[in-house]
Design a protein around this nucleic acid. Structure first.
Ligand SMILES: NC(=O)c1ccc[n+]([C@@H]2O[C@H](COP(=O)([O-])OP(=O)(O)OC[C@H]3O[C@@H](n4cnc5c(N)ncnc54)[C@H](O)[C@@H]3O)[C@@H](O)[C@H]2O)c1
Ligand SMILES: NC(=O)c1ccc[n+]([C@@H]2O[C@H](COP(=O)([O-])OP(=O)(O)OC[C@H]3O[C@@H](n4cnc5c(N)ncnc54)[C@H](O)[C@@H]3O)[C@@H](O)[C@H]2O)c1
Lengths: 217, 217
DNA sequence: CAATAGTTGTTATTTTATTAACAATTCTTC
DNA sequence: GAAGAATTGTTAATAAAATAACAACTATTG
């Protein structure tokens, strides 16, 4: 019986490398600040120096988006912003449901930034009667039982999990059962879902581990 | 004049690969849940299946921590937990100051989890008079001007930035000036600091970019 | 208007990370 | 107590990412 080498966890869908995908939003934020400061062009070496990385890598990353720079001039900032936004689908308003309207859940709902990056949280769900039927900003909070009905009325492909750690799996199962296609899991708990469901785990502990490691040599 | 290939941003300090470091906290969380369920041993293939990855990689990751498994039995869960916690310095209580006690800053202070993972937020700083002199949980919020004095009284090497995007650089400069050794930046804005300062950027937009990319094929 | 230097964009090389192969170990069963 | 199966741990091969090398282009300067 084979035990190893049998798992294909590489998505292999698009051809753009994930590291590139992860760097692009950082560039975008930088380009936006350049625009605010009235700067019209930027070169790969300037970008590289800002992010403390190699200029060739910047060039390669940007080439994936299809943008063209001009020799001796660099890239046009407006064009960069527009191109990256479209490339990353940050222009499409993707609806999302959020489960667990606690500390982090509220922060995310209150967070204005997300809507500029393609995501709109359309409803919150919780089990705590003190939270149910309240509103955070203009987002209403429902009991989890209302999810079934609501997921029919409001189409949303993304589900955000900010419940307590132990509730991550059951929440994921519930989301999948009612049609969610991608799960954004802020819990440190690993979740199991069918292969066709997209899962992204955002774990601040990984970042913390890196910080502590570097700090302690 | 050389333009490319001149940046060394690889820390090169420890010999444990960063991807490994980033996976270990996830394993740890899983092992803790196993312990709660009374499970005493776990094999690399079980772990691998939980995280949808290759079992060899798990073995390699764990070998970095120095833990030994037993053939035909697997790894001892208690030992795994203890070893990883020590390995990642999650047992040392590292003090941290947090700048920007808004939505996210409050969520982080309120978050119980961090203290089990080596981090203790000892004070918050803000510019908003409505927030200054309040407390979040048992953590007091001071005006940013009090930072100088407080950083002498309470030793802390880590600074957390949860200010608005535009204030990230000035906050970082201020932190560095008063002795902070590592900066955890939750802002999408890139910051520049001296080479000897550790910087970790936590950007949820990178995760979002990956989700949207996978979702749209 | 020729020379220069900054710059893009592509291809080649090197480094790093992941996966595969396999030898060694040891529990379990007959 | 021998045989078989599950498992670790190491070494080898492959794949992926980052870096280097370089050719082509074009604003600027003398
Ligand atoms: N607070 C942070 O800054 C932070 C940072 C990173 C990760 N996290 C993670 O995010 C998660 C939430 O953390 P938090 O601090 O917001 O916790 P919290 O306790 O403040 O919020 C959890 C919320 O989930 C609700 N809930 C419980 N069971 C539920 C269920 N089955 N369905 C829907 N809602 C349910 C609770 O009523 C509560 O409102 C945790 O897993 C934590 O590890 C938090
Ligand atoms: N809210 C979220 O869920 C979330 C998620 C990811 C990233 N972020 C990022 O975190 C940052 C903060 O977001 P937020 O939603 O908490 O914003 P917020 O406006 O709620 O909080 C910002 C706080 O910083 C304070 N502040 C302003 N200038 C300051 C200064 N110079 N020094 C110290 N404090 C200062 C403000 O008074 C305010 O209290 C932003 O950069 C945002 O992009 C937020």
């Amino acid at each position: 019986m084979k035990v190893r080498g049998n798992n294909n966890h590489k998505s292999m869908g698009g051809q753009v490398p994930e590291p590139t995908l992860r760097r692009l939003p950082g560039y975008l934020s930088y380009f936006k600040s350049l625009k605010i400061n009235g700067i019209e062009h930027v070169s790969s070496s300037q970008i590289a120096s800002t992010f403390n990385m190699d200029a060739t890598l910047v060039t390669k990353d940007l080439s994936h988006t299809g943008i063209k720079g001009r020799t001796k001039i660099g890239y046009n900032v407006d064009k960069l912003i527009e191109t990256i936004i479209v490339f990353l689908d940050f222009n499409t308003h993707e609806n999302a449901f959020l489960f667990g309207v606690g500390n982090l859940g509220k922060a995310l709902i209150n967070y204005d930034g997300l809507k500029h990056y393609g995501l709109k949280i359309v409803a919150g769900f919780d089990v705590d009667p003190r939270v149910i039927n309240t509103s955070v900003k203009d987002v209403k909070v429902y009991g989890v039982d209302d999810f079934r009905d609501l997921s029919r009325k409001i189409p949303a492909r993304i589900g955000i999990i900010t419940t307590p750690d132990g509730k991550a799996q059951e929440t994921a199962d519930y989301m999948v059962a009612w049609g969610i296609k991608a799960i954004w899991n802020f819990t440190p708990q690993s979740i199991k879902v069918p292969d066709n469901i997209v899962v992204e785990n955002t774990s601040i502990y990984s970042d913390l581990a890196v910080i502590l490691n570097k700090l302690n040599k």
